[in-house]
């Protein structure tokens, strides 16, 4: 297990070098998107329209931050990850269309996303769930916000970060999915329990 410090944009080579268990700290620009933002981005792209951010080599973060407007600027008060499973239906197409190299969230993703990460050369990394105040400490500034009509948690926040992490690579570009491995083992162990 290695430790990496990566700057955005991330290259395919950098993403493909990462393995399950590696720890990554990211500096540069990350973009939040939950289910509503994924849906809207894909609807626009399918119609051939542009989305307001360039995600080539980008990091998409499953996060609904706590944000407050203060003196004409946005300030972030909460920046931990949300459950990634909700984006499973949309993430593979999102990775393919926009060239994302790292998906950050918590709780893992499933087969379709795992296959897309392998095919297009990207990884899924987990930010520890709920670890919000620590993530705030890595925020330099809010660069932009798009689609605020979706509500603060669902809007697309473009955020500059410094050493954002620790992120643990849990699905890599070789097709290894740590969550799946842990759950399969847990199911095997559950069958062996003598209950009652």
């Amino acid at each position: 297990m290695a430790e990496y410090r990566l700057a955005t944009p991330i290259s395919e080579e950098e993403a493909r070098a990462l393995r399950v268990g590696d720890v990554v700290y990211v500096s540069g620009i990350i973009v939040t998107a939950r289910d509503q933002a994924h849906r809207r981005a894909l609807e626009l792209a399918r119609k051939g329209e542009e989305i307001p951010v360039d995600l080539e080599g980008g990091v998409v973060y499953h996060c609904g931050p706590i944000v407050r407007e203060e003196g004409g600027e946005w300030r972030i008060y909460g920046f931990g990850p949300t459950t990634s499973a909700r984006m499973e239906d949309l993430e593979a197409e999102f990775i393919e269309r926009f060239g994302v190299r790292m998906v950050v969230g918590k709780g893992g993703m499933f087969q379709k996303t795992t296959e897309a990460l392998k095919r297009f050369g990207a990884v899924y990394a987990q930010h520890p769930g709920g670890v919000s105040a620590l993530a705030v400490a890595s925020v330099r500034r809010v660069v932009a916000v798009h689609w605020l009509d979706l509500g603060v948690p669902e809007a697309m926040w473009v955020v500059e970060v410094d050493e954002f992490g620790p992120l643990t690579v849990t699905i890599d570009s070789t097709g290894r999915n740590l969550y799946q491995e842990v759950l399969e083992e847990a199911r095997r162990r559950a069958e062996r329990l003598a209950l009652g």
């Binding site: 008060y77 670890v131 919000s132």
Partner: peptide
């Protein structure tokens, strides 16, 4: 510790 020192919510999902 960071939450308590900075007076920030422990988790963004309050």
């Amino acid at each position: 510790r960071a939450a308590e020192e900075r007076g920030l919510p422990v988790c963004q999902d309050t």
